[in-house]
């Protein structure tokens, strides 16, 4: 462990690394522990000083802080600010940290008190609207995905140690989907966000015949206007598109423009076919920076 790391004769520092979780399922961290074959090499490359899911010791100085989850409570803001202060590099780990993730679905409802009651019943918990990390602190690096891919994190950590700039694929999932020789899910009658979502997952879902839900957020060029047309051409309504675009929060700004159209579409339906109970009507997003 104590031997100096080097690559091609260039000495490298072994970074002190901490893993932290805010509101999340901790599935991303679990992904990291999930591959025994490379775990030892991984542990040789970094010095883990804080990882609740993997060890009991902890320290409060670290070079890289990986933060999983989104911010849903006031105390999490304090915690996050503190992590930021202690870390040289703050990494948003997974869709929740990057975009709010599945958690941010609750932001779609006008009445958060109603949501709280539905979820917690008579045992309320102090929560607020869901925010990604970047709403409160500077995020140096994002690792996308729900969950993240272990191989990708390992590559990113290796790159950080070696001193390479971390680069994500800029193109959409379609590229990787075709390379996996899949038949386009649209042709099979299923909606998919592959054409607009950032690749890097190796088309994990489409390769298993599940349409993409956009967990990695938009690609560098995401032609959402065209995607909307395509969805309609293939017989999917705005509701279906919105469901997908809103699922992980990466497409929030486009979803905001689409939502009024959807409301118009829904209100033109006969009353009994309305899908949404009146108390929790979808409204244009109100997510604002605190």
């Amino acid at each position: 462990m104590s031997e100096q790391l080097s690559y091609l004769g260039v000495p490298l520092a072994r970074p002190k690394v901490g893993f932290f979780e805010l509101s999340s399922c901790e599935g991303c961290q679990l992904q990291l522990l999930n591959n025994e074959a490379t775990l030892l090499d991984f542990l040789n490359l970094v010095e883990i000083v804080n990882f609740r899911e993997g060890m009991s010791e902890r320290a409060d100085t670290y070079d890289i802080a990986f933060v999983e989850g989104s911010v849903t409570r006031k105390d999490e803001i304090t915690r996050l600010t503190e992590i930021r202060r202690n870390a040289k590099i703050l990494v948003a780990l997974g869709s929740c940290a990057c975009f709010g993730g599945v958690n941010q679905l609750k932001n779609r409802f006008r009445d958060l008190e109603w949501v709280k009651k539905e979820v917690y019943g008579d045992f309320p918990i102090e929560t607020m609207e869901v925010h990604p990390l970047a709403d409160f602190v500077q995020v140096d690096l994002s690792i996308f995905g729900c969950p993240i891919k272990k191989e990708e994190v390992e590559r990113i950590v290796t790159d950080l140690v070696v001193g390479k700039t971390v680069r994500h694929p800029e193109y959409p999932v379609c590229m990787e989907c075709k390379a996996n020789e899949n038949i386009c899910l649209f042709e099979l009658g299923e909606p998919c966000l592959g054409p607009v979502t950032r690749a890097g997952c190796d088309a994990w879902c489409p390769s298993n015949r599940r349409g993409c839900w956009g967990c990695r957020g938009p690609a560098e060029t995401a032609n959402l206007t065209e995607l909307e047309k395509i969805m309609h051409t293939y017989g999917f309504d705005s509701e279906t598109i919105l469901d997908r675009l809103e699922c992980f929060g990466g497409f929030a700004s486009f979803a905001d423009t689409l939502r009024p159209k959807n409301i118009a579409e829904l209100s033109s339906l006969p009353a009994q076919t309305k899908l949404i109970p009146s108390g929790c009507k979808k409204v244009p997003a109100r997510r604002k920076k605190p």
Partner: peptide, 30 residues
């Protein structure tokens, strides 16, 4: 261009598109 999704599907299904990119990676064990 306005319609194009910039997704690369045309090139991937094309029998003659041969353009490529090269990437190098350092293994976890250095």
């Amino acid at each position: 261009g306005e319609k194009c999704l910039s997704c690369g599907t045309c090139a991937n299904v094309c029998p003659t598109c041969y353009c490529y990119g090269v990437e190098e990676h350092v293994d976890l064990d250095l």
